[in-house]
């Protein structure tokens, strides 16, 4: 088993993911009656938060890349550019994700 957690810590971690997800899925049905519209700030957050969250998650994926030493994150940046370019061109998620991942694996294996 990898990682630094004990089995029980893993169970709690997964349990919290389940709990948080269930809360976000069931809350509207518990709180809002069908005729009531949600508060304006909630609507605003709902519309704009996802972009910020996915921006954060892109950075999160790169958190262990050392940009100041070694290859300065060059393989990651090249593979991201490739993924993005391919996606803008074809708009096909499966194609962009698989081609991006394979190109990254090839890059760190053969080039860097």
């Amino acid at each position: 088993m990898s990682g630094t957690m004990t089995f029980y810590e893993q169970i709690i971690t997964i349990g919290l993911c389940v709990l948080g997800t269930v809360i976000t899925r069931f809350l509207p049905f518990a709180v809002f009656k069908e005729s009531k519209t949600p508060p304006q700030f909630i609507n605003y957050i709902g519309k704009y938060l996802p972009s910020a969250v996915f921006g954060m998650l892109v950075i999160y994926c790169l958190k262990d890349v050392s940009f100041l030493s070694g290859w300065h994150g060059l393989p990651e940046l090249i593979a991201i550019a490739l993924t993005a370019a391919l996606h803008l061109w074809r708009r096909n998620m499966l194609l962009s994700v698989s081609a991006g991942t394979i190109s990254y694996m090839l890059l760190i294996h053969f080039v860097f």
């Binding site: 892109v58 999160y60 593979a79 993924t83 994700v97 991006g100 991942t101």
Partner: peptide, 12 residues
């Protein structure tokens, strides 16, 4: 990197 690529695509 599959996770990175996936979030880059969703972000885009």
């Amino acid at each position: 990197f599959v996770m990175t690529a996936m979030f880059v695509v969703i972000f885009l």
